[in-house]
Amino acid sequence: MKRKSNTIELSVRDLQTKAKEKPTKTTRKDSEIDYSEIPKFSPKQLAKFKRPGRPILGETPRKAVSIRIEEGVLKKLKTRAKKQGVAYQSLINDILKKAV
């Protein structure tokens, strides 16, 4: 390893040695972490938090499903949804709701 001003030149051997070195990353259990310096949230701050995940659309929550749709049909649905300014999943939901 040679040092020139602010740059370091490494040989292939130096690079191979560095690659073999184990990382010094340490992991800790949650029970070992000191949370005492973290301030508590006030009720006002907690009220600003939002629940993660997608918002409920419509009267009832939606259920995630996986279906196989022909590529051409899906392309047409996406085009139609884009024209209507809605997500294609919402369009599919509306079509199925009317059909059943």
Results as ranks from 00 to 15, higher is better:
Lys2Arg: 15
Lys2Val: 09
Arg3Asp: 12
Lys4Cys: 12
Lys4Ser: 09
Ser5Gln: 14
Ser5Ala: 15
Asn6Ala: 09
Asn6Arg: 09
Ile8Lys: 01
Leu10Ile: 07
Leu10Trp: 01
Leu10Gln: 06
Ser11Leu: 09
Ser11Phe: 09
Asp14Arg: 03
Leu15Arg: 14
Thr17Glu: 15
Lys18Thr: 12
Ala19Cys: 09
Ala19Lys: 12
Ala19Trp: 01
Lys20Arg: 10
Lys22His: 10
Lys22Val: 08
Lys22Glu: 14
Pro23Gly: 15
Thr24Lys: 14
Lys25Ala: 13
Lys25Gly: 07
Thr27Ile: 13
Lys29Pro: 06
Lys29Ala: 13
Asp30Tyr: 05
Asp30Gly: 03
Asp30Asn: 11
Ser31Glu: 13
Ser31Leu: 07
Glu32Ser: 05
Glu32Asp: 14
Ile33Lys: 01
Tyr35Gln: 10
Ser36Met: 07
Ser36Val: 08
Glu37Leu: 13
Ile38Gly: 04
Ile38Cys: 06
Pro39His: 07
Pro39Val: 03
Phe41Thr: 08
Phe41Ile: 03
Phe41Tyr: 06
Ser42Lys: 02
Ser42Pro: 01
Pro43Ser: 14
Lys44Arg: 14
Lys44Asp: 11
Lys44Asn: 12
Leu46Ser: 10
Leu46Trp: 09
Leu46Asn: 10
Leu46Gln: 08
Ala47Phe: 02
Lys48Leu: 14
Lys48Arg: 10
Phe49Thr: 10
Lys50Asp: 07
Lys50Leu: 11
Arg51Glu: 05
Arg51Phe: 05
Pro52Gln: 10
Pro52Ala: 13
Gly53Asn: 00
Arg54Cys: 04
Arg54His: 03
Ile56Leu: 05
Gly58Leu: 01
Gly58Ile: 00
Gly58Asn: 00
Glu59Asn: 08
Glu59Asp: 10
Glu59Met: 06
Glu59Gly: 08
Glu59Ala: 09
Glu59Val: 11
Thr60Lys: 06
Pro61Asn: 00
Lys63Pro: 00
Lys63Val: 03
Lys63Glu: 02
Ala64Gly: 05
Ala64Ile: 00
Val65Asp: 00
Val65His: 04
Val65Pro: 01
Ile67Trp: 04
Ile67Leu: 05
Ile69Val: 11
Ile69Gly: 02
Glu71Met: 12
Gly72Ala: 03
Leu74Thr: 01
Lys76His: 05
Leu77Gln: 02
Leu77Glu: 00
Lys78Ala: 06
Lys78Met: 07
Thr79Trp: 09
Ala81Glu: 04
Lys82Ser: 15
Gln84Trp: 13
Gln84Glu: 15
Gln84Leu: 11
Gly85Ile: 07
Val86Trp: 00
Ala87Pro: 01
Ala87Arg: 08
Tyr88Glu: 04
Gln89Arg: 12
Gln89Asn: 15
Gln89Trp: 06
Gln89His: 11
Leu91Asn: 07
Asn93Glu: 07
Asn93Ala: 14
Asp94His: 07
Asp94Phe: 02
Ile95Thr: 12
Ile95Asn: 11
Leu96Gly: 03
Leu96His: 01
Ala99Gln: 13
Ala99Tyr: 15
